[in-house]
Design a protein around this nucleic acid. Structure first.
Lengths: 351, 351
DNA sequence: ATGAAAGCGCTAACAC
DNA sequence: GTGTTAGCGCTTTCAT
């Protein structure tokens, strides 16, 4: 099917070594020989096999990338960042998705080891106690986590806890006191848990008692009763909702409007992730924005360093924690009703 | 670095052939030998190299995937579809992005040829006259296009022209006559052009003169003058806008609201793509929805067939054209003002 | 400046 | 049931 270096050698009447040199060190060849070989390469549509090369060589110039899903724009964005950076270093990506499933994580990593990737970038369900990663450490296959927020391994992310705290503080600064946190499935993400910690930090810091998180597993058209119960009494309902991600925030906003509540008139909404679309909504979504593309790019930079690739050392060491920002759009309003300031859904903290 | 089949053979005191059999045909081995070999495999963290295998074998079980960008959820979705389907057939993905740039398309395809992918799935800027694809045809490397809408090559997509026509017809049926089409960059997408043709079809079919498309290259916060000019006079402004994709539609809706126009009160908006987020907007976006994930899946099915993989033949031949649907959300309202029916931005077609 | 030959990790005849 | 060996496509000494 494919022509090989042998075919080219035969076609141009030289040895395979000469063809190899035409490919890798053309300056060593006689100009005429080179021309002849190149003609044959053209004529035969020859394209050297990375397989043959890699078998011989030390590196495959392949990076494995493991992400939960591409349906989440957060991962699509960081993948984009990895792709751009890795391509610039002449590396190629092998992509595997896991749907947050640890069996699939295991298969993904096995596959990538078989493919002899030089290293890998992964977003895993559990970054801390993870035997798969321990094994990578043991066998010495370099990897860098992206989005996972842990101090125990090389991991590029924002500081989710502080980011969430800062987001909630922005609400507090605008006078909100009755702030609820909504989350997708906690089970599936260590990040959601850290964000809840951040919410707690902010609330406690303001002398307020954090409310337990409300978990929403959302596929319905309307808000679940667990949330509606909190919204019924205007005097006691929360004045702001902090959602653990933007998709959730958008869905919730819709539900609120269906329930006859205006955003931000009746209730403010803050998301997390900073997906691009949020900014374009007619009521621009407020969000704790994370630099997803940069997370991908920095993950690659760290991996590149571990691979001993010539790095851009001009800017000093590459950070693991990237700065977040609180993007206050139109979905947050300052609280003006003084009554709301004193009424309390969450009881005041005596401390 | 990695241990090889030789290491395992030495460690367990058998020949490399036996190790190979332990991997590929364990039933041929004596139970004790097998156990011994497996122990060594464990002990040495041995993982067979796909490189060695592929060099010998006919197939690499690798598919190349070439998409313009992952920032567009349309491609992220179809990639997801490819991934799911290909993984199910025990194939792995090599991903390359091109940013609609033909030089990058060329490099992507070269890279994938070097990697000896068994076939590839691509979304290219120009599907019809494309030397790269012609070359693939010549050398016999199987490929299937996704999203590209052409009859000249194997390509899985919706019928963009008919889909656009159907979308515009939905507007016409609701009494709209002054309908404008907005598009991103036409240069970059054959699909946008086909969608404009569909708009023309619908307008002409209703005895109306289509208006030239308004091209928006959007990064600004407000609507460009080219569009605002059309909106100034309430008596003559369009009653509906057909946008060539959903991102554009969302941005335009925001601009309209900034300009003091309500959607759909003053003006209806129809998008194209059916991105999931659109449905979750508080005013759910109307859109000509395309089955992106299915496009990916079917592209794989076609490729699998060309690769001679055992296909799911139960459901008959796999189609190339997938059904679109017009999702009418809240951004379209029927036209009630009879005055608007007769006034005309676009002149009535005498035919 | 070019060729001959070994070897990368593995599979598959073929032998025993 | 297991071992020996050739060879997949390429790079890389080592000769010439």
């Amino acid at each position: 099917m494919h022509s090989t270096i042998k075919d080219v050698a035969a076609h141009s009447g030289v040895s395979i070594a000469t063809v190899s040199r035409a490919l890798n060190a053309p300056q060593l060849l006689n100009a005429e020989t080179l021309a002849k070989v190149r003609e044959s390469i053209e004529a035969l549509d020859f394209m050297p096999s990375a397989r043959g090369r890699q078998l011989r060589g030390v590196r495959t110039r392949l990076v494995g990338v493991v992400v939960p899903t591409l349906a989440n724009p957060v991962f699509a964005e960081s993948l984009q960042g990895i792709d751009e950076a890795a391509c610039a270093s002449d590396y190629r990506l092998m992509l595997m998705t896991t749907a947050y499933d640890s069996a699939r994580e295991r298969r993904a990593i096995e596959t990538l080891r078989e493919q002899r990737v030089d290293g890998l970038i992964a977003t895993v369900a559990d970054a801390e106690s993870n035997p798969l990663l321990d094994e990578l450490d043991r066998i010495g296959l370099p990897y860098v986590l992206a989005h996972n927020d842990t101090a125990y391994r090389a991991a590029v992310s924002v500081d989710n806890r502080r980011a969430a705290r800062d987001g909630v503080c922005a609400l507090l600064q605008r006078g909100h006191r009755r702030i609820l946190m909504l989350a997708g499935s906690f089970a599936e993400s260590d990040r959601a848990r850290l964000r809840y910690r951040g919410y707690e930090d902010a609330m406690l810091g303001a002398g307020l008692t954090p409310h337990p998180p409300i978990e929403l597993d959302f596929n319905a058209d309307d808000l679940p009763p667990s949330l509606l119960a909190h919204l019924s009494d205007p005097a006691r309902r929360p004045t702001a909702l902090f959602c653990s991600n933007d998709r959730l925030a958008i869905i919730v906003m819709r539900g609120l409007r269906h329930a006859g509540l205006s955003v931000p008139g009746d209730i403010s909404v803050l998301g997390f992730d900073g997906i691009p679309l949020g900014e374009w909504l007619s009521t621009a979504l407020s969000s704790v924005a994370t630099p997803n593309r940069e997370i991908g790019r920095y993950a690659w930079l760290h991996l590149a360093a571990r691979l001993g690739l010539p790095g851009d050392t001009a800017n000093g060491p590459v950070p693991f924690k990237l700065p977040h920002s609180v993007r206050t759009g139109a979905t947050i309003a300052p609280l003006i009703d003084p009554a709301a300031r004193t009424a309390s859904l969450v009881s005041e903290n005596p401390a």
